[in-house]
Nucleic acid binder design. Structure first.
Length: 466
RNA sequence: GUCCCCAUCGUCUAGUGGCCUAGGACGCUGGCCUCUCACGCCGGUAACGGGGGUUCAAAUCCCCCUGGGGACGCCA
């Protein structure tokens, strides 16, 4: 049994977007599930469009998702000699040749072919000229003129394309850099890849790569092409559709496990199961259940999953995240213990950590800086409730206990004595303590706020109602 | 234009010839719970693109059509 080796080869010309993250996840899962190795490779042969900053962003995204790699990151830009070795070999074995045509000439061939309804491709003018190395010359692959090239795809099944569709692709550019197709094949061969799981958009590249494997005399790895992720308009997902990079979701307050869970279910399924722990993913993930049709990125389902994970996450971890987001919103620092007490009240209510931070503001705001919903204050802080609050202030001050149960008992006793329903006082009290008309339950809120804050906010309200 | 791929509720999907008058989940929606908002619970809405075959039997297999996506770079 050979060791499973997979890879994720992003091009550092953009962020780690959700589509890339999903293929990375699939490759990672497959390697981990089979106790194999997962390799990271940076495809930066396009020097002009690649940047170190993008590379770091991609690595950050990977780490955030928890997709650790066993090898790499390898940089293609540092492996040029290796690629040249292989190109020379192809030249020697007659699988490649030098071509002196300029990009403009090639472009003209394509437009001409297109105009006459033919396949737009290089016409092979230098194919049999026997040109040797020289300035202004690229190296092209000598592709078969007839026949078919095919392979068995893990998700799509048998794929085959007439060779007349393929042209003599460039292997080495004018600037001496290898092209993508050559570099991937050389890398995948030398790094011993066993499985190549990648986006559907590479499907039509694969026959060209298959030809290269054959020319090199190397066995094919297993290819698996997963369908694309589309936007709600069913077009290829792009910035137009809103957040597409995984780090954007992190900043929006999504939990990595929610992202992973959402992504894995996009194109893969295990019966009716929706929620997967990492362990479950590792035991259940399979290539056979990868879907074969494109899917739409559905933000609302991601949000639901995130809410789910927030509910089940430990208050301690949430407190850390909460502090971070609160800080970002310019709120003063609060103790970890306090935030850890706040979190459970907000967990069932927050869809994202950004939302939780927003809801947590009244907990951490200074009593005098509490943002008051004025309309609500006018509506609820009436003369009638003022009398009650005045008494309640004393009762709360002298209450022996300040926990939820004690508070509830205190209120019940008071209300029964006055013959008043809690409903009458609930909203006014909520506005006084939180500044808003929506909040967690009053008794738990008071317990967490603590006696001092409650008393000060009550006193402030009393003063206001003078 | 050519080639390749795809096709079940609005969305993600289950379904591998009979268990399907098509199941789950998100969303939307009715109700319950209730100090507000949520959570939760119960219920509802909604799909096999069309046409031909094959078969005793088709969402499932084959063909055509239609629709969608992708690729045709000295980008990856």
């Amino acid at each position: 049994m050979t060791t499973v080796i997979t890879r994720f080869p992003p091009s550092p010309t953009g962020h780690l977007h959700v589509g890339g993250a999903r293929t990375a996840l699939f490759n990672w899962l497959w390697a981990r599930k089979n106790s194999g190795r997962f390799t990271l490779r940076i495809e930066d042969t396009d020097a002009a469009r690649s940047s170190e900053e993008m590379t770091q962003g991609i690595l950050d995204g990977m780490r955030w998702l928890g997709l650790d790699w066993d090898e790499g990151p390898y940089y293609q830009s540092r492996r040029i000699d290796l690629y040249n070795e292989y190109i020379d070999r192809l030249l020697q074995t007659g699988h490649a040749y030098y071509c002196a045509c300029t990009p403009e000439e090639v472009e003209a061939m394509r437009t001409q072919a297109r105009a006459s309804g033919a396949v737009p491709k290089y016409n092979g003018r230098c194919r049999d000229k026997g040109l040797t190395s020289g300035p202004g010359r690229v190296v092209r692959f000598k592709a078969p003129l007839s026949g078919e090239t095919g392979f068995l795809d893990l998700v799509k099944g048998p794929i085959s394309v007439p060779n007349t569709q393929l042209d003599d692709m460039v292997l080495r550019r004018l600037d001496g850099m290898p092209t993508y197709n050559l570099a991937v094949v050389v890398d995948d061969v030398t790094m011993n890849m066993t499985h190549i799981i990648r986006g559907d958009d590479h499907l039509s590249n694969t026959p060209k790569q298959v030809l290269l494997y054959e020319a090199l005399g190397r066995p094919l790895p297993q290819f698996g092409h997963v369908p694309m992720i589309l936007g709600p308009d069913k077009k290829k997902l792009s910035k137009r559709h809103g957040a597409t990079s995984v780090t954007a979701y992190r900043d929006l307050g999504y939990l990595p496990e929610a992202m992973v869970n959402y992504l894995v279910r996009l194109g893969w399924s295990h019966g009716d199961q929706e929620i997967f722990s990492l362990d479950e993913l590792l035991t259940h993930f399979s290539l056979e259940h990868l879907g074969s049709s494109a899917c739409v990125f559905d933000q609302s389902k991601l949000l639901w999953l995130n809410a789910h994970y927030i509910k089940s996450e430990s208050p301690a971890r949430l407190a850390g995240l909460l502090a971070e987001h609160l800080g970002r919103r310019g709120q003063p620092e609060s103790g970890a213990a306090y935030l850890e007490a706040v979190a459970p009240l907000l967990q069932p209510r927050a869809g994202t950590m950004v939302e939780m931070a927003e809801m947590a503001e009244f907990f951490v705001a200074g009593d005098d800086e509490l943002v008051m919903d004025e309309a609500a204050a006018t509506k609820f802080l009436t003369a009638q409730v003022k009398e009650h609050f005045a008494v309640l202030h004393f009762l709360l001050r002298d209450a022996p206990g300040f926990d939820q149960a004690a508070l509830e008992a205190l209120f019940t006793r008071y209300l029964e004595g006055k013959g008043v329903a809690f409903k009458i006082l609930a909203q006014p009290l909520r506005v006084v303590l939180t500044g808003k008309t929506k909040s967690p339950g009053l008794f738990e809120t008071m317990e967490v706020l603590g006696r001092d804050r409650v008393l000060r906010r009550l006193a402030n309200a009393l003063r206001r109602m003078e």
